[in-house]
Structure formats: C-alpha cells, structure tokens
Design a binder for these strands. Structure first.
Lengths: 320, 320
DNA sequence: CTGTTAGCGCTTTCAC
DNA sequence: GTGAAAGCGCTAACAG
C-alpha cells in the first residue's frame, strides 16, 4: 500500500506538496497538482487516517450514545446530529447501549484514548460520579438538564412540559390522569414524576399508583397499557403518553377494545412525529432534529459548559 | 496530557520499558514495573490509541453493517459477534444503514482508510461490483451465500430452508401457502423466492401474487398482513413468516380477528427466539449467536474466502 | 509556490 | 532485563 512518500517520489515532488493537494490547500501549481493526482490514481493511493489522526491530534469522529437506534425518537435525534456532522465533515460512531452501563463505559474509554473527539450522550445511565472522571478527556454533551454539571447540554424542561400538559388536561375537565414512562430512573423521568406529584398536590388530587405505566416505549406496548386499563375499576380518564408511537399503539388497541377516544380516554403525547398527524394526536411537539443539531454543535465547540433549553409547542388535535 | 516519554522520564526508565509494561511483556523487573505503574497513576496516563494504531498498522476495530440495530434478529447476531470480539480484544463499530447505500459506503471507506481492520456485512444492499473494489483493503465478510465471490461468508441455505418448510406445510395438507419477506431484493430474498416458485411448480400449484407479503419485519407489521389476509376471498391456509416477532404480531392480531391458529391459518416461522416458545410457534431455529461468532472469526482471520453454511433445525410446536 | 524537517505517541528490532 | 533508535504515515511550521 503506497504512502505519501511513494506518491511524492512518483510525482517528482515533496511530501508536503502531496499533503497540500491531499488537504486542498491553495497555492499548488496546476502541473504539480496534476502530477500528484495522477500518481495517486496509479498507485490507488489511500490516506491512512490513523496517521492523520495522530498527527492532528483529533479524529473527526464523534461518539453518540443511545439506548436504542431503532426507535423513532432516537432516530430523529440522530438524524439531527448526523446532518450537522456531515456539514462539518465529522463522522459518527454510534454506541447502542440498551441502557447497559458497560456499553457506555466503552464509549467513555474511547473518548479517553482519543479514538473519538467528543461524546454525545442522548440518554445516560452511568452515574455522574463516573462521568465526571471523563470530562477531562474531551467534550461530553448531554441531552438532559445538566446545568449543574461541568458539561454542555441541550435539553427540554420536562418538568414544565409535564405540568403544562397536565394542566391542559385539567382544564378539559380531567381529574383522573395517568401517564406512561419508559424508565423509572433517569433525569427526565424524575423531573416528570416530580411534576406529576406537584400537580396532584396543587389540585388536591389523590395519587394513584395504578395510573402510572412503566417500561412503555413502542407501539406494541400499547397493548400492555390498555390491558391494564381495562382491569382498573376506576381507570384514568386521560393519559399522558411520552411518545407518539406508543400513543398510536394505545389508540389502536383501544379501538379494538371499544374504548372511544377522547370520550372514554383522552390522550396527549409527545414528539409530534408523522404518525401523530395521521392519528390526529394532540401532542407536544419536540424539535428533535433541532436538538440533534445543537447537541452536535456543542460537541465540537471548545466552549465548556454551554446549556440550551429547547422549547416545546402544543399541537392541538383530536385526542383530548 | 502525559505521553509515554513523560512516564519514562518520571519513572527513570526508557520508553521501551514503559511500552513493555503497557503491553504486559514479560521480562520487566518488578521494581521498574512498579515505578512505571506509579508514574502512570500520578500522571493519569492514558495511551493514545491513534498512535498505537498507526504503529501497529491495525486498529482492533471491526465494522459491522446492519440495517437496523433494534430488531431482535440483528440484535442476536450482534451479540454473537460482540461476544467473540470481547474475547479477542476487539471493539465493534456498528453502522446502522437502514439499507441506505450511502451508509454502507461510509463503512467501506473506513475500511479503505484503515480506520477499521475488517468489515462484517450482515445485510448487504450495495452492489457486488462496488464491493469488489474494496476487498483489497481488508477482510469483508458476508452473512449471505457468497461462495462465488472472493470474500468470506457465513450463511444459511435459505433456498433449502424455505423448500423444507414449504414441504412440511404441504405434508400437513396445505396447498395454499403464502409468505412474508422484508426486502424484495437481496440474496436471501431471492433464494427464498426461487424456492417458492420451484415448490409451486413441483406440486403443480398456482402462483398467487396476493399470498406474498413484503416489507414485513416487526410485530406491528402483523396487523398489515392480517388485514390483507381478511380481504382475500381465497386466502392462504398457511404462512411462512420470516421471523418470530412478526409471526407473533400476526398471531396476536389473528386472535382479535377471530382467526384460529392453526385451524384457519397455519404458521411456521424462523429464528426460534424466546417469543417463539411463549407463542408456541413452530419455527426453524437459526443459531444466530453461533453465526455471529463465526462471522467475527472470519473477519479477523487472514485466510481469504472461507465459507461456512450454518444448519437450521425445525422446532415443532403448535402453530401448524 | 515548494521542499526540508521536526514532530504526533507508540512499537519494535537490535545490541548490550 | 534494558535502552537507543528507527520507523508507522501524515501534518505543519519554516525557510526559501
């Protein structure tokens, strides 16, 4: 495999000239440039990126930690990140973790050993105490409110969002409101839970354990939710569902069970993905692509600890 | 950030000695080794992997191309690959392609520029004519029958499998048999299609376009299948379903539609994942973890063009 | 515009 | 056991 020296020799120039055409520097004469290009062609020359990385001290690789790659929520987030990465000539290394800490640590180690320049954590499960050890090795940016930590973050005020949604439901006459969540733990889940408790207390409403649905993520989990709903003797009249896909699953299964929406059950969800429109879902629009873009930009900025709160918009349709 | 020189100086040894303890070479005196270790601790030393990669000429990174990371089929395959990777001290770089050629090309380019040592393609969409250009840069191993190409492969004889399954159904009295597939194209799909045609011809059965279901992959796609099934005036009495998850979706939806299995509709699927047992699915067991292991081993072997056919086993349960 | 040269950080002979 | 030194392939002053 030919290297830069071989090309230089073959083209009758110095390595720096080759390097210049490699990096599209200006000020290379047309003839020499042509000669170099020709030599490259002949030798099937390919840059050894490891050498480039070592020399430059950076890899132009950004790690992205996500629990699942296939869920539309993360899909859109990645899309936002990836779009911006392409623009800035970066590549992405995706770490799908399934929320296993081991996987997250692998990513952190790659940051430590300079195999990636920065790390975007879309959903964290590793503890802050561990994460803190790694911020010295490169930018780590989070997709949760991390204003109290020395990293950057792009986030949504899930507390306020949940509260707004709950109040919206309250205004529409609902007093028995439940919600779904994927994880019990995690910053976002905690914020939402707190909002729920505060809302209840504020309106003097009782807390009903059975109104909360965990481990709900995909369309198929709708079955699970509705199934339990039907066993409740005093079921909620409204549900806050944390993503459109799940909401669609719930709606679909409700239809089969003869539960009318919004008459028997009101639903308000999050994201405003395409499916939300089709299902006429009232939903809180989260600009995921924009969030992704911002996450990426924070990752390549050297500025430490930038924080950006993303605004959410209520889209009123027909499920409340 | 301290480098190997700093450590050498601090420990009062040469860089080679540091390198030796770094790589756990034998023949380093206890005292020096301790001194080096201590210096590393003090400086929070971290190896720069790019330098290692450059020096060694390899990265210990294997690329894995899959269309979706979240589908259990690919999940298990990756598990098999990852298990073996850990044992051999390799890391994986996952490229989720959604079957976009652009993504596959990115992976191939990383092979070309030595950012990964080898590439495992679990499901290919890029054309062979393109792929061939890249085999010079490093091992490429396929998860499809590639015996006619100068790469390694671990594969299933999908033609035979499909034929066996069809004949099994035939023996159970079925004459109207349909099947599901995700992609219309792709080596595996083509093989299966051919088996179906041959089966039909062999038994003098008519070809029914409407018995074939494309774009079926996940649980939720079951709805789609059943929906169409119900519109058919002469529906198939049996279905060959290409994975357990989809089969489970079909079964679930059938139940709601009052279609009894196997009385009204027999189902035989593939994979034998946990869900298959719960649903009492008759299925063809594919040892995905074993396949993954073999794929990985082929990727790190220098032997060119090894090919291994994996055997499939019929698990008889209650859906036929 | 172009070439020389000193790194980037680590590995690996080779000699002692 | 240990160290000196020559790479690995490329970049980026610096000098001309």
């Amino acid at each position: 495999m030919a290297n830069i020296k071989d090309i230089a020799k073959a083209a009758g120039v110095s390595v720096s000239t080759v390097s210049r055409v490699l990096n599209q520097h200006p000020y290379v004469s047309k003839e020499k440039k042509e000669a170099v290009l020709e030599a490259m062609r002949q030798f099937h020359y390919q840059r050894n990126m490891n050498a480039v990385h070592l020399s430059k001290g950076k890899t132009f690789l950004i790690g992205v930690i996500i629990p699942f790659t296939n869920h539309p929520y993360f899909g859109l987030l990645i899309e936002g990140i990836a779009n911006e990465a392409v623009k800035n000539n970066y590549k992405l290394v995706i770490f799908q973790t399934n929320y296993e800490e081991e996987r997250e640590l692998e990513a952190l180690e790659m940051l430590q050993t300079k195999q990636i320049d920065a790390l975007i954590i879309c959903s964290r499960s590793v503890d802050w105490s561990i994460l803190n050890d790694y911020i010295q090795y490169g930018p780590i940016v989070l997709c949760e409110d991390a204003r109290e930590h020395p990293v950057s973050s792009t986030f949504i005020n899930h507390y306020q969002c949940f509260l707004d949604a709950l109040n919206y439901l309250y205004e529409h006459g609902h007093r028995k409101i439940g919600y779904s969540l994927y994880r019990k733990t995690g910053t976002n889940s905690t914020q939402r839970e707190r909002a729920y408790r505060d809302f209840l207390q504020q309106h003097g409403l009782p807390f009903q354990e059975s109104y909360i649905f965990y481990n709900c993520l995909g369309f198929e989990d709708g079955v699970k939710v509705v199934e339990r709903l039907t066993t409740l003797e005093d079921p909620p009249t409204a549900l806050l569902v944390t993503n459109d896909i799940l909401a669609a699953g719930i709606m679909t299964y409700c239809r089969e069970k003869g539960i009318t929406i919004p008459h028997d059950l009101a639903i308000i969800s999050f994201d405003n993905q395409p499916i939300a429109k089709i299902m006429h879902l009232t939903t809180l629009e989260i600009p995921l692509v924009e969030m992704g873009k911002n996450l990426f930009l924070q990752a390549i900025m050297s500025k430490p600890s930038a924080h950006k709160e993303i605004q959410v918009k209520l889209i009123e349709r027909e499920t409340v």
